[in-house]
C-alpha cells in the first residue's frame, strides 16, 4: 500500500530520476547503433551488389537471397541446420533432465557427478572441436573401442544422407556426418540443461511428490504427472536457448570438421564466414546473416515479448 501511494501519478520525476535515465542513455545508444543500426546496415548490404573487394552499394533487389536459395551449399546448410537443431535440442533435454533427476535422488557423491557433467560448459567450442575431431576420427578415438564390436562408423567423414529424397538441388534427409557434430555439441551443452533442471527440481516441494505417492502413484507416475509438468517452463527456456545457439553455431563446426565433403557438416554460420571473409562476397554473406537473424528471431522475439509482459 505504501508503495502504491509513492507511485501515484502525481509524483514528479525527481532530479535523481533524470540522473538515472542519463546514466542509462550511453548504453542504450550503443545498443541502438551497434545492434539495430548495424543490422539495418547489414540488411542494406544484403540488397546490394557488393560482392567483391570494391564496395558497390548499387541496389540489387533480392538477387542475393534468390541466389542463396538456389545454391547447393546453402540448401545443404538449411538441411543440416534442421537436423542438427532437432537432434541437439532433443538430446540436450533428454540427457539433461534424465541426469538431473538421477542426481536429485540424494545419492552419495552427487556433487562429483554434477561437477563432472557440468565442466564442459566452461570450455570453448574451439577446444571441444579440436579434441572431438580426434575422438571421432574414423581411424582412431572411439573407433578403437568399437572395433571390438566390429563396427567402424565413419563419423563426420560419412557422406551418406539417410532417408533422403530430392529437394531442390540437394538430397534432403539426415546427414550421418552431422551426428558426430551433434555428439560433441551435446557433450558440451548438456551441463547447461542439467543445471537448469537441477534448479527446477529443487524448486518443486517434496510434499507435492509425497502427496502423489500417498494417492498411490508409482515413482514413474509421480515424475510423469507431477514433476514433468512443473518443469515445463524450464524446458521452454532450454529449448529457446539451445535453439538460438544451434541456429548460429559456427566455432564448433569450423574447428571440428569444416564444411565437409558435399557440405555434409556445413552450416550457415560457416558459409557466411567463408564467403564474406575468405571470398569477399559481402552481399551474399550479409544475406546469409540476415536469414540467420530471422531464424533466431522466430524463437526469440515471442519469448522476449512474453517475458516483458510478465514483468509488468
Amino acid at each position: 500500500m505504501e508503495n502504491q501511494a509513492q507511485r501515484s501519478p502525481k509524483r514528479r520525476i525527481s532530479k535523481d530520476h533524470w540522473t538515472a535515465i542519463a546514466f542509462l542513455i550511453p548504453s542504450f545508444i550503443l545498443i541502438l547503433v551497434f545492434v539495430y543500426g548495424f543490422i539495418g546496415w547489414t540488411g542494406y548490404v544484403s540488397l546490394s551488389n557488393y560482392n567483391s573487394l570494391v564496395p558497390d552499394f548499387s541496389f540489387a533487389g533480392l538477387k542475393n537471397y534468390i541466389y542463396l536459395f538456389n545454391d547447393f551449399r546453402f540448401q545443404a546448410d538449411l538441411r543440416n541446420t534442421v537436423f542438427f537443431t532437432i537432434l541437439f535440442i532433443g538430446l540436450v533435454i533428454v540427457l539433461g533432465m534424465g541426469l538431473a533427476i538421477l542426481i536429485d535422488q540424494k545419492l552419495k557423491g552427487e556433487s562429483i557427478f554434477r561437477n563432472i557433467l557440468l565442466f564442459p560448459m566452461a570450455l570453448s567450442f574451439i577446444v571441444t572441436g579440436v579434441v572431438w575431431q580426434w575422438l571421432l576420427n574414423p581411424s582412431t578415438g572411439f573407433n578403437q573401442f568399437l572395433s571390438v564390436f566390429g563396427i567402424q562408423p565413419k563419423w563426420y567423414t560419412d557422406t551418406t544422407i539417410l532417408a533422403g529424397f530430392e529437394w531442390g538441388s540437394i538430397e534432403f534427409g539426415l546427414p550421418v556426418a552431422i551426428i558426430a557434430v551433434v555428439i560433441a555439441a551435446v557433450w558440451q551443452m548438456t551441463g547447461f540443461s542439467l543445471a537448469m533442471y537441477l534448479a527446477g527440481l529443487r524448486g518443486i516441494p517434496e510434499e507435492l511428490r509425497e502427496a502423489a505417492r500417498m494417492d498411490g502413484a508409482s515413482e514413474f507416475q509421480v515424475y510423469l504427472k507431477v514433476v514433468l509438468p512443473m518443469l515445463m517452463p524450464i524446458t521452454m527456456s532450454v529449448v529457446i536457448i539451445m535453439a538460438h545457439i544451434s541456429l548460429k553455431i559456427f566455432d564448433l563446426i569450423y574447428a571440428m570438421t569444416g564444411s565437409g565433403a558435399n557440405f555434409v557438416t556445413d552450416v550457415p554460420g560457416v558459409y557466411m564466414f567463408e564467403t564474406t571473409f575468405r571470398g569477399n562476397y559481402y552481399a551474399n554473406g550479409a544475406a546469409i546473416a540476415i536469414i540467420m537473424l530471422l531464424l533466431v528471431a522466430i524463437f526469440i522475439v515471442p519469448y522476449l515479448w512474453s517475458s516483458r509482459k510478465g514483468d509488468k
Binding site: 547489414t42 548490404v45 564474406t276 540476415i290 515479448w305 516483458r308
Partner: peptide
C-alpha cells in the same frame, strides 16, 4: 528499453559483423 537491450544478446553476431 530493457527488452530492446536484451534482444542484443540473442542475435547471431554474423548479422552485425560486416558494418
Amino acid at each position: 528499453i530493457f527488452t530492446i537491450i536484451l534482444f542484443g544478446m540473442f542475435i547471431p553476431y554474423q548479422s552485425i559483423l560486416i558494418p
